[in-house]
């Protein structure tokens, strides 16, 4: 395989809090290949959401390099950065907060198309309908307001918005954590279908090892802003080496569907 899609090295972000400087992200390095899912796992405060925001240039790092599609991503600015963003998208945890509360479905899908200069208005209307159908929704939904549709539909719309500009990498920040379990599985399935067909890579951020082991190729386990361990997702989750990895595995709720319920043990 040639050069990685995303290569992050020595990424560091410090915050000042009450006179003390705390490194939320401390010398983190990882890479993602095209079409691959890399999961970032860790407890809250481990720095995983900060890494997502750094990779997306929503905040600026104090040190480190980010190389995306063979170019220095951190050196881009202004119009060049905005143009590049078409290839690097994001889906947020709370699909309601991720959209302008006043927006219509058509508008949130029109925004990326219009911003990245997609053709005429009728062409965009056609593309919006196609995007909705691509994520398993009816094209009629375009005329509805964002706050009228269900949580699962909203997250599908968020995914449609993310794939509108044909990205090579999507950052999914706890993208399925707020969803009902049955909806969650459908959304994960949709993400996998998109990955297979469009060769999109995912940076999948989650505290839920069950979800990670279901869809990630590799996993990086974080603790207090540092990498605790990393490797093949099934292997790491099957036999964690780090203390935090063991704690995460031990804490995941387990369903024992064959024997008697776990409730009896005390």
């Amino acid at each position: 395989m040639s050069s990685p899609l995303l290569a992050v090295s020595g990424l560091t972000k410090r915050y000042r809090r009450g006179g003390k400087t705390i490194a939320a992200v401390d010398d983190i390095s990882f890479h993602i290949e095209p079409g691959e899912t890399l999961a970032l796992a860790g407890p809250s405060g481990s720095g995983k959401s900060t890494i997502a925001r750094l990779v997306l240039r929503l905040i600026e790092p104090d040190a480190g390099h980010i190389e995306f599609e063979g170019g220095d991503f951190l050196s881009l600015n202004g119009a060049a950065l905005r143009a590049r963003r078409a290839r690097l998208q994001m889906v947020f945890q709370d699909p309601l907060a991720a959209f302008n509360p006043r927006a219509m479905v058509a508008r949130v899908l029109d925004d990326p198309l219009r911003t990245h200069g997609v053709a005429s208005r009728p062409e965009r209307t056609r593309r919006i309908a196609a995007l909705l159908e691509r994520v398993g929704l009816s094209a009629d939904l375009a005329a509805r307001a964002i706050h009228e549709v269900s949580g699962g539909q909203r997250q599908r719309i968020a995914i449609a918005r993310a794939i509108a500009t044909k990205p090579s990498l999507i950052v999914l920040d706890e993208a399925v954590s707020a969803l009902d379990v049955s909806v969650r599985r459908q959304i994960l399935q949709l993400l996998l279908d998109l990955q297979r067909q469009e060769r999109i890579a995912y940076l999948f951020i989650s505290h839920d090892l069950g979800v990670i082991s279901a869809i990630a190729h590799r996993v990086v386990i974080l603790d207090a802003g540092r990498v605790a361990e990393s490797g093949n997702a099934r292997a790491v989750i099957g036999a964690p080496q780090s203390a935090i990895g063991k704690a995460l595995v031990a804490a995941a709720p387990k369903l024992n569907r064959t024997s008697q319920g776990a409730a009896d043990r005390q």
Partner: peptide, 14 residues
Amino acid sequence: ERDFVAGARVIGMH
């Protein structure tokens, strides 16, 4: 500070 503003930036909006 809300997510939808971050979302608009990720889209590449001016």
